[in-house]
Design a protein around this nucleic acid. Structure first.
Lengths: 126, 126
DNA sequence: GGCTTGCATTGATGTCTGTCGATACAAGGT
DNA sequence: ACCTTGTATCGACAGACATCAATGCAAGCC
């Protein structure tokens, strides 16, 4: 166990447990729309790589200037993908001086993970 | 950075642990493409509802004739979405007499859930 | 001030995708 | 054999999306 320093960012959706999990009850229409929006954000290889690069970063933050050169794509395209990830509350960013830094929002990721998990877990107390 | 080449995409199903999890290492390009394909299948509200209706079904199976009338969409459209879910290995089906029955494939769901989970779990034995 | 660099936004374009009607196929009943 | 019903496939079309070049904006530096 390393001192993981899990930050628990001031996350948006309070409980996060919007729905009982895919395998336990049919989705309501609005929940399906909301979740589909999030999964759609994950449904692109560039965004998945961006997100993994950000989420797996040691310090928890990545400068855009480190992300862009890792792809064979134009700078506006990377910026566009980062925006979509941000709109899905999967990442957030802050400008510090000249550079902009991105970090992952684990709450949203864990919420999606919980939704997909088919085996019953204890945390479904909501 | 030399022996970076071990690709290990041989697997596909069974164990499911294709990659160490989004928060623990940047994705390889092939892995990102493969996972994006799966998430894209989840990135539609109709498919999410279909999948949850199938996965949460008591007997484990649902007849298409029970799925189609639950939507305000044409029968070919539902059939199309079911095909996409099947191509993502999220569900499978079998024809029995006149009707076709669908069931969920938890392995793929759990694989995606594990990939999204940000906290370290014991099963990361790969 | 003016110049340079890092990143976001805009506008355009080609491709992908969700949807439908029409049709084909499969199986059971007559 | 024929008809009926359940499901999949085909072809077409409108809207969404990924991508780029051009431009805008913010911040540091001369």
């Amino acid at each position: 166990m390393s001192k993981q320093e899990l930050v628990v960012i001031g996350q948006s959706d309070e409980t996060g447990a919007c729905c009982p999990g895919l395998a336990f009850a049919p989705l309501e229409e609005d929940q399906a729309a909301e979740l589909a929006r999030l999964f759609k954000a994950l449904g692109d290889p560039v965004r998945l790589r961006l997100l993994s690069m950000i989420a797996s970063r040691a310090g928890g933050e990545v400068c855009v200037c480190d992300l862009t050169p890792a792809f064979d794509l134009s700078q506006p395209t990377i910026s566009h993908h980062l925006k979509l990830l941000r709109q899905a509350s999967l990442i957030d960013c802050e400008r510090r001086g000249t550079w902009v830094y991105y970090w992952a929002l684990p709450a949203t990721l864990d919420r999606l993970a919980a939704f997909l998990t088919t085996s019953q877990t204890a945390e479904a107390t909501a």
